[in-house]
Amino acid sequence: MILHPTVIANLLAAYTSSLMLVYAAYYGLQILRHWNIESGSELQLILERKTYLVSTVLSYVFGLQLLSLFLFVFTADSLRTLFVGAMCAAGTLNVNAFGYPTLVLKVVNFVTSGLWLVLNHADNQGYDYPLIKKKYLLLIVITPFIVLETLLETAYFLGMEPDVITSCCGSLFSGEKKAGLGSELASLPAIPTLWAFYLTVIITLISGLVFYFKNRGGYVYALLSFALFIIALIAIVSVISIYIYELPTHHCPFCIIMEDYSYIGYLLYVLLFGGVVAGSGIGIILPFRKIESLKHALGGFINKLALTSVLMYGAFTVIVTYRIIFSNLIM
């Protein structure tokens, strides 16, 4: 256990969001079971009021989720001085078996939480709670994951023993040793990966613009934006990072958030995460376009999402391209 202020802040955030979510999920369950918009019973009135509470709570929780994802990486990064051989977050996350699972779960939860907010916003456009059951079903699906995340995070921080020799990012994400996902990603050939990345970007952006202007191919774009998210993450590990570090052997996806690289990683990741949430969100709400009460409001919202997503991915690509062109590393 390391009693570090940032660790305490992390755990505090995790536990408050878990507790609030479980509280909200409890009412979600009630709504799923007893919701009947036609009825004027007292229970229905109470439930209608509770929806305000639940959506307020969840907006806070998911806002917290976003912040805590970054705080988590930040913490892992700043604890590196306590461990022999850890030079960045990659090393500290490897201190025990819970580090990487927590991170993966945080990313997954962040995306699903974002999707929930998109759904919630769409639902609020209609006067008769058209999506309420689907919304709360999704909430009940998300809750166990967030609770699991909290437990893993606790285990990770409690299990930290300072001065355990951990492998630093140099060996974890190096192309020479072939063990583990990190190394496999890193050993992907750089130039083809870069081509694959740009190809996906171009296809995704074109499909996004087609959808924005012509209103066609929404599902395709949702799918593509999810694919782009994954490919961009792979590309960061295998090729973009080495251009930013200007070192052909350094593949770490965490070092780019450090001060030495003027915190560029935060910008890149925010753009990427924003892009995937907005892009895939389209896929989630597209089926509900036909619903009577949402007909008018939803079209504009979907267009906005598409535009946001395209712009974010576009900005991501522009920054990455800029870094690659002006990098001193020539491949």
């Binding site: 940032t6 955030a13 912040l67």
Partner: peptide, 27 residues
């Protein structure tokens, strides 16, 4: 890092504490 941590340690407890009373007042 310090400012974020501070924010988490102070603003979040306050916010959480006021959600339910806020909702009660609003309804």
């Amino acid at each position: 890092e310090q400012l974020t941590t501070l924010f988490f340690l102070t603003v979040i407890p306050y916010t959480v504490a006021t959600i339910v009373p806020t909702w009660r007042a609003a309804t």
